[in-house]
Amino acid sequence: MALPLAELLKLDPDKMPAHSERPTPDEFRHKKQVYYEDVQIGQEIPKYIQRFNTVHLFNWCAAIENPHRIHYDHPYAINYDKLPGVLFHGTWRMAIIPSWLKDWTFPGGWFWKADWQVRAMVVANEITIVWGKVTNKYAKDGLGFVDLEIGIKNQDGIEGCPGNATVVLPLKGGKPIPYPFVPPN
């Protein structure tokens, strides 16, 4: 049973990652479809919880070929840019959020869109909690659209990335979601 976000935030930060609901590769292979009818307004969706450290930052900088020193040079970050530590990239959120919502809708759904504000820095070694809650759902053209409130909180509950998203889920017994995805008019 997943721990609700409010309960999770009461835990010792070191105990939070154990409650991550990120599927393993094997769980992906056997993942059951979430259907539109399964979703209730107000429901939380699986949270991804992880302590991202400087090794993760190094890997991310190298992968996206971003050489800016605030992301890996601690003395530079704190002395020159007066930051609290080395920071995750603002655009890192742009990769995390779509992948997380893609996972939830897998295998037959579709991550369509999301938007968010950049409100707080993500410093290396913080806990990041990627969370979402269903705010609305509607069926259109035989497809199930689900609106979500989303965000990325740290271990202190500070929201660094408030936003919204819409995913598309199949209806039970309904048609497959078209691929490539064509947004409704």
């Binding site: 869109k113 999301a114 504000q117 950049v118 936003g163």
Partner: peptide, 12 residues
């Protein structure tokens, strides 16, 4: 100059 946020839309 500040980065205020992002919005993404994915089709394929």
């Amino acid at each position: 100059h500040l980065h205020g946020g992002d919005a993404v839309e994915v089709f394929q």
